[in-house]
Amino acid sequence: IRRKMVTPAAGEHPLQYNYTFWYSRRTPSRPANTQSYEQNIRQMGTVASVEQFWKFYSHLVRPGDLTGHSDFHLFKEGIKPMWEDEANKNGGKWIIRLRKGLASRFWENIILAMLGEQFMVGEEICGVVVSIRFQEDILSIWNKTANDQVTTSRIRDTLRRVLNLPPNTIMEYKTHNDSLKDNSSFRNTKITL
């Protein structure tokens, strides 16, 4: 499929990268295999400037108002929010579990940090996800190289700062390879305090 190239318009502030919004929703009874995941994920739009981002974002439902088992993803253009994508296959993600009611605020803050290039880890950031679940909501940030400890530590420390997380917040990291093996996004993570 050919898509129109998205570029900043005159007077707009360009972003370092273009980003694409995705949405996915799963019926809990259905198994989360790769095929059904790919079928359930939908590309919503791509932005190239700060102004285009706000225009798009302001019309989206806030994640805290979503119901059921659904996710918003914001990824660099060209990277699919899937473990198997070329940019993700050696990567992993930091996970922050949020009690109900916090997702919308944290989602906005993590997006602004990513769009503003606050993480200072070169090309390493792939995208961010907010996952709405029944008991809790989950925020994740995906990076390219799971075994690069300098990068993953810097992402973790930046997250603490930009999200203003209390010092005792539990941070969990999971490689996409491990997610593929146990076919689960958020189980069996490595916990860091």
Binding site: A9, G11, E12, H13, P14, L15, Q16, V50, E51, W54, K55, S58, N109, L112, A113, L115, G116, E117, Q118, V162
Partner: peptide, 21 residues
């Protein structure tokens, strides 16, 4: 190359620009 860095306050200020509506 140079990196385009924006802080949170700048990004939030852009939200009220007519171009962002």
């Amino acid at each position: 190359g140079t990196r385009i860095i924006y802080d949170r306050k700048f990004l939030l200020d852009c939200r009220s620009s007519p171009l962002a509506r």
